[in-house]
Amino acid sequence: MTKVHTDKSYDKELDELRAKLLTLGGKVENEIALSMRALAERDSKVAEEVLDADREVNRLEVIVDETCRRLLALRQPAASDLRLITTALKVVVDLERIGDLAVNIAQRAIDLNQSPPLRPVHDLQKLAELCQKQLRAALDSFVDGDAARAETVIKDDDLVDALYHNLFNELLGLMMEDSRNIRRANSLMFVAKHLERLGDHATNVAEMVIYMVRGTDVRHPHSRGLK
C-alpha cells in the first residue's frame, strides 16, 4: 500500500508498530541461534546470553501490545489497518513464545553440558536449521506482505513434523541401546519437541500474514462448519 493516510502521524504510528514487531522478531531469531550454538558447542555461557536476551523480548512484547491497544482506542482502524493491528496482536504472542522455547533449549543445553556428550544426532541440527528458515520466511512474509511466501511456510511445516518424528525414533533407539543414554537423549527429545513447537508458531505467524494480506482466515480448515 503506497498510499498514505490523510493524517500522516497515523502512518508513522503504524510504521513504528511494524518496526517494533520486526525488532522483536529479529531478537527471537537470535535467541534460537544462540541456544542451538550453546547446545552444539557445549557452551553454557552462550546459553546464559539467551536468558538475558529473553528479558528484552518480553519487554518488547509489552510495548507492542501497548502500541496496538493505543492504535485501536485512538484511531478506530479499519480494513487493512485493522488487519495489520490484529495480526500484530496475535503474532507478538507467537514470537514471545518462540523466545520462551529458545530459553527452554538453552536450559537443556546447560543441563546437557554437565555430562559427557552423547553421540552426535545429525537430524537435530537439520531440524533447527529448518525451523529457523521457517521463522525467517514467516517474518519476511510479514514485512513484504507476501501471502504466497506465507503459504509455503504453512506447507513446509509437514517437513518439520516429519523430521521431528525421525529424530524422536532415533533418540528412542539410543535410549533402548543403553540405559545410560536415557537422561541425555530425553533432554535432546525435549529440544526436538521445542523446535517442532517453534515450527508451529512460525506457521501461526504465516497464517496471520495471509489474513493480514488477503483478509481470509485460513486456520483450521477442517473445523469449519462444526457447531
Binding site: 498510499k3 498514505v4 493516510h5 490523510t6 493524517d7 497515523y10 482502524p77 479499519a78 480494513a79 487493512s80 489497518d81 485493522l82 488487519r83 488477503r214 483478509g215 481470509t216
Partner: peptide, 19 residues
C-alpha cells in the same frame, strides 16, 4: 466493507487515505 473491502477506493476511504 470495514474489515476487507474489495475496492481500493473503499479501502482508502475507510482507512482515511483520501484526499
Amino acid at each position: 466493507i470495514f474489515t476487507n473491502p474489495r475496492e481500493p477506493r473503499t479501502e482508502d476511504y475507510v482507512t482515511g487515505k483520501f484526499g
